[in-house]
């Protein structure tokens, strides 16, 4: 059994950055095939996914149902484009399947379902991820498993009351094997984040989490923060990721309406060229 990079002694930042770039390439390929998608969020979360799947998490792509695997829960099911990219890159999905993203009848639908290999929960109905992560963390601890649970959710999801119920649950049940990754990209369906969710980090701290706040597109910062979250100290951990939607492609980063990106057929090649140019 080959475990991915565990326990990681020192993060190989250059290699992780290369992984993140490959994820972005895959996502652009998927989005250009369909002509649209949640590409801005995908590009924004790519660094975090690379750090998790190629550095921090203990998992085995050959055995997606391994009982002691670390779990990654993507609560924002519409980030599926990023999920499929990282699952393909890690070996859970066939890279050749990726072009079917979002196409009618595809095994890689626009929102994530747990029928896809490597996907742990049905994402997309927002506010469902954290509570299930808490339950998994509690159950794994009952079994004496060394596995940890990593749960991504977004700043927009902080609008959902269930997120806060679950946050209290994580602290109540002392889920120190739980790490939440809050993608604060500042956008939601109708535009900028609308309700008074800030200060996110202070709120998580007040809810009983050991909290770190970092630039979510800074690989070294990601690896360092994840490293700090390994302590079994009775507290759930939160990393507040300040990410930029469309990171890596300035034209998308500059878009005001980045929640669901539609790009003209003639523009995709230019954007992909931009990604390569920016990361040359």
């Amino acid at each position: 059994m080959t475990l991915r990079n565990h326990p990681p002694a020192e993060p190989d930042i250059a290699s992780l950055k290369a992984h993140a770039l490959d994820l972005r390439r895959k996502m652009m390929g998927m989005a250009s095939g369909k002509g649209e998608g949640y590409i801005a969020q995908g590009l924004g979360i790519a660094d975090c996914l690379a750090a998790l799947y190629f550095h921090e998490m203990r998992h085995d792509p050959a055995r997606a149902d391994w009982a002691d695997r670390d779990r990654f829960l993507l609560s924002t099911g519409h980030y599926s484009i990023a999920m499929y990219a990282v699952l393909a890159q890690a070996g859970y999905l066939d890279v050749a399947e990726l072009p079917s993203y979002g196409i009618n009848g595809s095994a890689l639908p626009m929102s994530t379902f747990d029928t896809t290999n490597g996907v742990e929960i049905v994402g997309g109905s927002l506010g469902h991820g954290l509570g299930q992560a808490v339950g998994m963390a509690m159950g794994l601890r009952l079994d004496g498993s060394p596995a940890r649970v990593f749960c991504e959710f977004s700043d927009g999801e902080l609008d959902e009351g269930s997120t806060w119920e679950s946050a209290m649950g994580a602290a109540t049940f002392k889920c120190d094997n739980l790490v939440v990754l809050i993608d604060c990209n500042g956008i939601q369906a109708d535009g900028p984040v609308t309700v008074a969710i800030e200060p996110v980090a202070d709120k998580m701290t007040a809810f009983g989490f050991e909290t770190y706040e970092i630039d979510g597109n800074d690989m070294a910062a990601l690896a360092e923060a994840l490293g700090k979250c390994r302590e079994p100290n009775g507290k759930p951990k939160a990393i507040v990721l300040r990410t930029i939607p469309g990171f890596g492609i300035p034209t998308i980063m500059a878009r005001e309406r980045a929640h669901f990106v539609r790009v003209g057929n003639d523009e995709w090649d230019a954007l992909i060229a931009e990604l390569e140019h920016e990361n040359a």
């Binding site: 929960i121 299930q132 808490v134 339950g135 998994m136 509690m138 159950g139 794994l140």
Partner: peptide, 11 residues
């Protein structure tokens, strides 16, 4: 949600 999470690790 917690019940669902527990069930998804075998409970």
């Amino acid at each position: 949600l917690i019940a669902a999470g527990l069930s998804k690790v075998g409970k």
